[in-house]
Amino acid sequence: MTTGPISTGIMPNVTEGSVADAIGGVRLATRSDESDLRELTSLAVQGDRSAIETLLGRLRPMVVRYCRARLGRVAGQYHIADDVAQEVCIAVLSALPRYRDMGRPFASFVFGIASHKVADALRSSVRSAVPTQDLPDGPDDGPGPEETVVRYIEAEHARRLLSRLPDNQRELIILRVVSGLSAEETGNVLGMSPGAVRVAQHRALARLRAMAELESIA
């Protein structure tokens, strides 16, 4: 599978497999020492290649998850979402020299870009273009067809119910739960206090429960 001609030398390609290699990266990216991340960002802004690579390595798994959760699959694949995640990373890379630390976490800057890129992708008609995956050279150790279909149906059900939440609640749940941001980081992205995030996520979960229960009765 290819991810398009948008990769650069400094940044690893986002492939469909790459996000799972960083499952622990959720914690690494969001629970790391804030001052450490701030220093890393500062070095990256000054053009330090190693700092840029480390910074993008921490942020990329969260961006991929965010794009996958927002855009979903096209023809059963995450090509489009992964390409958009790659575009987000490139946009962040391009904007780095102009980034100024105004006291907000770097993640809020990144997810601001991601939110716009996802909105562009949703408006765009390129979603119909589906590249063909290369044939694998060896045995596939991933889930089998039955498990894949069950997982797909459950995830689509979740997306469908999430799409019925108010926009701000959907965005909050995706950032907080799927991308793996803390309540503080989610609040910084959305311009809310951590307390307001906690109340809003509680209300969003209550709505999800109510919708799921209503569907199970119907």
């Binding site: 996000v19 959760a69 894949t148 797909y152 459950e154 979740a158 749940i173």
Partner: peptide
Amino acid sequence: RLLQALIDDVDQRRSSVSI
């Protein structure tokens, strides 16, 4: 259960088939 399903889906290594 719903959110866990979505997380499993976006975290997965690769999708083996296009359904």
